[in-house]
Nucleic acid binder design. Sequence first.
RNA 1: GGCGCCGUAGCCAAGUGGCUAAGGCAGCGGAUUGCAAAUCCGCCAUCGUGGGUUCGACUCCCACCGGCGCCUCCA
Length: 514
Amino acid sequence: MYNTLSKRKEEFVTVQPGHVGMYLCGPTVYKPSHIGHMVGPVIFDTVKRYLEYSGWKVTWVVNITDVDDKLIAESALRGTTMAKLAEEMTADYLANLAALGVRSIDKMPKATEHIDNIIGFVQGLVEKGFAYASEGDVYFDVTKDSDYGRLSNRSVESMQGEGGSTVDRKRSAADFALWKKAKQGEPMWESPWGPGRPGWHIECSAMSRAILGEQFDIHGGGLDLVFPHHENEIAQSESLHGCCMARYWMHNGLMQAAGTTGKVGGRSAAQSLPEATLDAQAQAATKISKSTGAEPFKKLLERHRPETVRVLVLSTHYRSPIHFGEEPLGESARAMEAFERLFSRYERLSGKSFYVLTAKNRRDGDAAANLAGNEAELLRVKFLAAMDDDFNTAVGIATLFDFVRLVNKYIDQHGLEKKSSADVLSQLSEMMLVLRELTDTLGLFLTEPIATRIGADEKTVSKLMELVIEIRSRSRAAKDFATADLVRTKLAEAGIVVEDRADGTLWSRKKEAT
RNA sequence: GGCGCCGUAGCCAAGUGGCUAAGGCAGCGGAUUGCAAAUCCGCCAUCGUGGGUUCGACUCCCACCGGCGCCUCCA
């Protein structure tokens, strides 16, 4: 896997054999989470699934930053308390994670629950001479850390830059706050340096140590956190512990708002327009952040299934930026239908739902023996090879598409829809189990889409449709195609698609053509 | 200004110093279908531009053009 620290791919060797400690920098809970906040969790959820599949025991920690300048500002704006705001936004975050099927986080520590721990950490740094107190603040002295800047490839000198005018409390401009003195009316905790609150970077150092130990395996986050956040975490932890913090630093690419016009990276039409018409949404590609006002993720879920988001995220390599927007989402949704059509095809033939299949873990199975003339096995091996190579989910998903084609072909060639055959059916089931095994590692297709489930109020519709289809089938049998076509056309207008298949007529709701 | 990333078909997106440059969406042709839909088969790129290294580069190096990120809060 790729390590930001060494800037190359490395063999994955854990601190403790068989166990992986993984820490992901979570959100500052001051606003509803947007799509950008979901990328990390989806990616690392997949990483965890795959590592577990591969035989590791994984402890995954995601922190919640519930004390911070932005929280103070936002709660003041809303006329609420910081704690309440944090609680509300944390709930929002958790709900979104749940929707996306990210359920594998083991611990979610909050900064405010670790204040003592944080104070102890800062004290340790002060005692060792890496930090100094200054008028109620405590700063980390970057000049004491000879390694400072190695993650982000910067030097202390290069950062002395403009400096700024309000840094008189700091010894040098690059020093960063470990502890911030409280101003009037701000939330505060008592400390050896007076009332105040933790700086931004310190919580991750303190909490990762508390839960995962001084040294753990994977530390992740968005590419935008490399500097200064992660750089500073390393400085704090390694200065205090005298050794290495995380072995592997994994950084995911950021979400970019895809331009509504033209190609990203080329001359988009928008750029040739007069400036007046060139506003935020017409820009080619920009990072989604608070400045561009990304919509809350919850709103997005009103239009798109979580599965679609997951597919979109995983069809790009995790270190690359993801072009995000209605169009890419619609495309992912359409692409996904191929899988779901296969699932329902399988269900019609076997009577079993793909969603309840339980695949066995054959990670270390005897691949060679199974390989003989078995294309499904070949694809499985290809999939695993891709995932083994720095979690290449894009290639993984590509082989899954190949897999779908393979299975469809198998059904076609054996005419399974025309005449059933126990032999063919059991082969089919075997293949579906392999597909289940692989999609499990990506966290895909875990639950049946709600749209296909028929709820109580849908019962009537369902009965009615049965009747309509029955009548239409009779006209078809009587070669009265005019009537049959009329029914189908009218149903299409009502948003219902009719399919005459070898094994009977099906109807379904038309997918939104986004 | 400093550090870094990217530029592959109409669109999205993998990948490799030399074997057919994945996969998806869209499109086209065919099989199948009463006609459709779905499915299957086939077609659709020489890899931003210009140099260099090499027996050989899309893949390595340099320059240029274009896009993006970080350097302040950000997943």
